[in-house]
Amino acid sequence: MEIFENLDWLIYGILIGLFVPIILLLGNKQFGISSAMQNVCSVIIPKTKKLFSKEELNENSWKLYFVIGIVVGGILATSFFDEGINIFLPQKYYSIEGIITLFLGGLLVGFGTRYANGCTSGHSITGLSMLKLSSLLATISFFVGGLIYTFIF
């Protein structure tokens, strides 16, 4: 089978999974990214700071630096270790309609992940690694939402 001829998925899966124990050991933090949106928002628009829980902002302050790192990682992966065409979004999104669509999609991502208290990294990777029922139900819900959009709209 094709998937066994190219084992990239195995290497990438292992590397992503290792972030769970590494972040636990280095910072005793449960790995997750969605809550970083609150920190990013409060830094870019300081007036919004009072709308967020101070406790959560403090707890997640490290994630601000983590997401800055993710941007740099994206730059490095495509600029200095480039192997081919790097297209991650369809051309149709480079239009007024596309920008509005992405904004609205982003709104659902931001709202949904906060309401669910986690995203793919927080629930599907970290929470499932800890065998939590809440994270299993969250992951199922993520897929239900994605499938609803894909097959109904």
Binding site: G110, F111, A116, I140
Partner: peptide, 21 residues
């Protein structure tokens, strides 16, 4: 919220092709 928020996020994930990270 785990279920309702999770489903809302899933729709956004399919639209944008991106989760928060």
């Amino acid at each position: 919220g785990t279920i309702i928020g999770g489903t809302i996020f899933g729709i956004g994930w399919a639209i944008t092709g991106a989760c928060p990270g």
